[in-house]
Design a protein around this nucleic acid. Structure first.
Lengths: 344, 344
DNA sequence: GTTAGCACTCTCCCCTGTCGAGTGCTAATT
DNA sequence: AATTAGCACTCGACAGGGGAGAGTGCTAAC
């Protein structure tokens, strides 16, 4: 069987309608609302064909049709009319980024809020990956007699810190010297370049404060751990409750429990390397837990290097057109913003 | 009418039963399950009295009784048997705090997770208040030609940071000198003691880099802003979905939307100053949005000074006994932990 | 003061019938 | 050969009715 123009047009109408209404779409609806110039009977025949080809499904015998994942895929790839953002929306976004905050975390958080409010889906944003980031400063600051704070500052303005305990005999001056040494070793190096060998070497010589060095190295290694799930930012988690397909408490709870697993989200999204917007529909997702959702992902970069991921999660019955426009625009806007803010 | 012993005993049985079952409790249930030595008819009479006195309510004519907020209050104040934590639970908590993390944020986050998993309610934990906290270090770290990071470190190991832009003519050395000056002015001062006057004075003299000083002062003021809602940590937000009274999507959404308003939660909880555990039941809460919930709050301290708040939010049909035990124990354990970690 | 007994009330659940939306098939039309 | 009108059929949603069950309040007896 062939997918001729008319079939495509009908499929498009059905999906458009279903995305808007969440109700199975009948042949008569299509004939009336989207004047095709053919009768409902003809449309019925076409719909039967489309179902046979796997683009539509029937919840039960005498209901209308709903799109299958395969149908949505065709829709996204070939049928959907991508309407860009309205001028007002674009301006709204630009305005928000225009007032510069001076905390990167705030920017990311704001991005997730913005995404969720623009799309009405749940936004998940990954903070910038550490591995392309340079270390600008390392310092040990004494906090009290037994504790010091190790701080690590990157050129993106992110700080990492860890409390380490300090043995009795160590004074402020000693810490200061170690800070200098650390800075000397690691300043302007990228995180991947940090090798612990130089430190370990020094440690071997310093029999005296071995314990202290152990905890120092410990703190440093956990600080630079690249896969830090604390860098997962959520926006509009409850948006999913607006959609009738998740009015079932059990499904809703499953979704929320998923969102609480930051490590899972991190693993899910970190892989998207390709720049541009990508769409994963329902069962295309490798994780069973997400096969009733669609995910739209974009990346953001700094000076051309991809450093993070934006995404939204919603029902497979998603407004793909709007979603893709928003993600595309936001990815670019955020990239520009970061590039301007942190690069010369 | 008088609240004699028998009435109290019946009220207690009703509330115990209702907390466990979430179903209106009938006279026959009480007579059978809690052998009182009196018949259901007598209990019926007593229940009618208790309702008249305002301790019980009837959802409709021929249903059993449910406790009113006033009933719960009496229960919490006089009837409830506080069973302390089991030895296993206490050990479980102690074990978790035994492995010291070196990041305060991790400790607070862990506390919220622990609270929610122990009680099955939603935990809200406020991070340590800044106003009793001492500044240990302030520094300006250059990030690139146009940016520097202002870091502020407290004796609790919390860092605050902000990116500020740096005008062309300023070199690393100049930043270093300013860092020294800031340290000199503010080191070992509490946040409340920070007066901007000395800075402003200097600023007046330094006509040259006025713009820079402006943004520096700006960043400093926002960093030390005491009422920072980012210090609100949630645990087990979806626990509420386990309780039948919130199987209604609309109620559930209201609750989640509430939790997203971090500022609101902050305002709600920051007031609890009294040490020990306090309970707010349903309509006792001043905020309408929370009058279908009960909140159990405890405080934690460091070296005797109250610096933060733990709380759990659940249905008014809460297991008060368990909740209060857990909150009490956790408040003390966290206080001990923090005191040991950061004080001498 | 307590209790057995009884009439009454109200919810829940199941069953039933009806309505409407939608289908698939067939036969007639273009 | 494609399209369409017509029709029988299917299924879910919804409303109404009736019985079961849980619980109450009242009264009269203990």
């Amino acid at each position: 069987m062939e997918l001729d123009k008319r079939k495509l047009r009908i499929l498009q109408a059905i999906i458009d309608d279903y995305i808007a209404s969440a109700e199975p779409v009948g042949s008569r609806t299509i004939a009336k609302k989207y004047d095709m110039g053919i009768s409902s009977a003809t449309i019925r025949n076409e719909m039967a064909d489309l179902e046979e080809m796997g683009y539509l499904e029937q919840p039960h015998t005498s209901a209308g049709r709903i799109p299958s994942d395969k149908g949505y895929r065709l829709y996204v790839d070939r049928l959907m009319k991508v309407k860009g953002l309205s001028i007002a929306e674009a301006k709204y976004i630009k305005d928000i980024y225009a007032k510069k905050t001076n905390q990167l975390e705030q920017v990311i958080l704001q991005t997730s809020k913005l995404l969720s409010s623009l799309t009405n889906y749940t936004a998940v944003v990954l903070g910038p990956k550490m591995d392309r980031v340079l270390i600008k400063h390392i310092q040990l600051v004494p906090i009290d007699k037994r504790c010091a704070l190790l701080i690590l500052i990157t050129n993106t303005g992110i700080t990492k810190d860890a409390v380490i305990s300090v043995p009795e005999g160590i004074d402020e001056d000693y810490l200061y010297r170690i800070s200098n040494m650390l800075n000397h070793l690691f300043k302007d190096k990228s995180i991947e370049d940090i090798k612990l060998e130089p430190l370990l070497k020094i440690q071997r010589d310093m029999v005296q404060n071995r314990q202290f060095f152990n905890s120092l190295i410990d703190a440093l290694t956990t600080s630079i751990d690249v896969s830090d799930p604390s860098e997962v930012y959520l926006g509009g988690a409850t948006n999913i409750l607006n959609y009738p397909e998740y009015h079932d408490i059990i499904k809703a709870k499953e979704f929320f429990d998923l969102l609480e697993q930051k490590e899972f989200l991190y693993k899910l999204l970190i892989r998207s390397e390709s720049s541009g917007v990508s769409v994963t529909i329902g069962q295309e997702n490798q994780y069973k837990e997400l096969q009733e959702f669609s995910i739209v992902t974009a990346t953001y970069n700094m000076g051309g290097k991809t450093i993070g991921t934006l995404s939204i999660i919603g029902p497979t019955r998603m407004e793909y057109s709007k979603a893709i426009s928003v993600m595309d625009f936001m990815g670019k806007t955020l990239s520009n913003y970061l590039t301007q803010l942190f690069m010369d």
